[in-house]
Design a protein around this nucleic acid. Structure first.
Length: 318
DNA sequence: CGGTTTTGACCGGCGC
DNA sequence: GCGCCGGTCAAAACCG
């Protein structure tokens, strides 16, 4: 019951354009504070990361950034060793018979407690267990670059335009709120993200991204930030939005992989977040306010902070 | 019926 | 070596 309510709520909130787009796009690391509720948005958006690079430092909050930025990148990449041990082939199905016989012997010594079938089952279990081991191949595999940011939102999992599948949830020490683990559903994309609620302020969601998407945002044809995909009222404007979030890391990958994957030839828009000569107004020029139609109101209002200027103009601003 | 979420178990790293 | 903890797996449940 509650679950359904939650689902509803999440659906309602699902439109929240997510700041990870920004972060992902910029390849930033650290924790970004991204207030996205109306009460907060009215306070003047306090981007926690340095937006100087966009020429919109007016809205950056360096102190906050400094305050909350944390080294989410592991201290040491600990030499990724493709050591032979990774080859350490676990018991393969073929080896089953061998170990099976030895197991039988062992059982024989004790007592004939199990039938052959039982043993087979046990062997299957063990085999299954062992089959898990090879996955530890890269014991110290270098972690992807990570970054985290904080978002004030009622929902844990905000829609960032990408599709995620939850693959785990864990209770977090010293926090009453569990941490959820998501993985990008795109087969070749190994991006993960963790979502947890701040124990200090339950209204704050801490999202940590790991890795770089190797594909455009599925909800947008050109990898642009997705803004209210189902809001047809805006999609038109958004489609031509000057607010285009490039994805440096993604672009890097483009360069690296475009030979392998023509997919990446899809030109990623250049950084037009810069306000110097684009039609996108400076943050200073813009008035962040809950100006979107009511259907947006309950969403994380982050989209207010990053919706294109056209959208912002949409509702008469008075 | 296929995709997603839930959830208990498992594993490795790390500190003691 | 042991226990704790974070991260992941995968079967089952759930959902559209």
């Amino acid at each position: 019951m509650e679950k359904k309510e939650e689902t509803k709520a999440e659906n309602l909130m699902a439109n929240s354009t997510f700041s990870n787009q920004i972060s992902t796009a910029l390849g930033l690391q650290g924790i970004f504070d991204m207030p996205c509720e109306g009460d907060v948005i009215n306070q003047k958006a306090s981007f926690g990361f340095n937006m100087d690079m966009f020429g919109i430092q007016d809205y950056c909050n360096p102190s906050l950034f400094d305050l909350i930025q944390t080294p989410v990148v592991p201290p040491q990449p600990a030499a990724v060793s493709e050591s032979p041990e990774v080859v350490n082939a676990p018991a393969t199905p073929n080896s089953l018979s061998v170990s099976s016989s030895s197991t039988e012997a062992a059982n024989d010594e004790q007592h004939t407690k199990t039938t052959a079938e039982d043993q087979e089952q046990e062997q299957d279990k063990e085999k299954a267990k062992k089959l898990l081991k090879p996955k530890k191949k890269n014991p110290k595999r270098a972690r992807e670059p990570r970054f985290a940011f904080r978002t004030r939102s009622e929902v844990d999992h905000l829609d960032d335009g990408y599709r995620w599948r939850k693959y785990g949830q864990k209770a977090v020490k010293n926090s009453p709120f569990p941490r959820s683990y998501y993985r990008c559903t795109t087969p070749t994309c190994g991006v993960k993200k963790r979502v947890e609620r701040s124990s200090d302020d339950r209204s704050i969601v801490v999202t940590t991204y790991e890795g770089t998407h190797t594909h455009p945002c599925p909800l947008t044809p050109r990898g642009n930030i997705a803004v209210m995909p189902e809001s047809s009222a805006f999609s038109g404007n958004i489609g031509t939005s000057s607010f285009v979030l490039p994805q440096p890391q993604y672009q890097q990958l483009q360069q690296q992989q475009q030979q392998q994957q023509p997919y990446f030839h899809n030109p990623t828009p250049s950084l037009s977040f810069s306000t110097t000569n684009s039609s996108f107004p400076t943050f200073q020029e813009r008035q962040f306010r809950p100006s979107l139609p009511s259907l947006l109101r309950d969403d994380g209002l982050l989209q207010d902070m990053i919706v294109p200027s056209q959208v912002l103009k949409y509702p008469k601003e008075e």
